[in-house]
Amino acid sequence: MKGAEKAVPAISTDDFIKGLWRENPVFVQVLGMCPVLAVSNSAINALAMGLATSFVLVLSNTLVSLLRHGVPRQVRIATFILIIASFVTVVDYLIQAVSLELHRALGAFISLIVVNCLILGRAEAFASKQSVSRSFLDGLGMGLGFTLALLCLGAVREILGSGALFGVALFPAGFQPWTVMILPSGGFFTLGLWLLFFNYLRVRKPAVREAVPGGTP
């Protein structure tokens, strides 16, 4: 894996970086919306969901890439889904073992990582055609980009909706929280505003998205 990485260093770095900003799965490709909206009502939930998805994404990308010569084209989608479903089951039990409270907060959305179009999309569009090391980096980059986007959303919603960040109160007692922000409609509004912000950057000065490497504005 290290050797292949050294052979094509420029491409490998790019495989990792592109998921963070230029092809950010949430803000640019608009993939995997369901979990993004559903579990971003607090920063800690967003972080946990992002990490769980990244874990599945990295492992499924690696395994799909390893098996890419052995799987017949006709059954490839079914195979990918089976691989993803197995890793999601692992994550489900893992989270249950680490924190039962978190497992309850995320609920069915851990199982629903299976149908996150981002993971199947990367398996089909990237991992089934590329080397193991590149697929690994691609999964890592996309996973981190996804986590970053979830955190952007979760932080805004938690600060406005409950006046706290990662459970730590930020405002004096007189602060009246915008309860609507942690309700479903707040999710739609926050994501809509983030997308609007990114569209605005793109429409206004196209050079900006190349110059800023991270997702935090």
């Binding site: 479903p184 809509g192 505003l193």
Partner: peptide
């Protein structure tokens, strides 16, 4: 406006619909 076109606009409408369904 250009910047609001597409998914951003759709999401905000969805937000308002969601408020209504509450």
């Amino acid at each position: 406006p250009d910047a609001v076109q597409g998914t951003a606009l759709t999401l905000m409408i969805a937000g308002i619909l969601s408020l209504a369904f509450m």
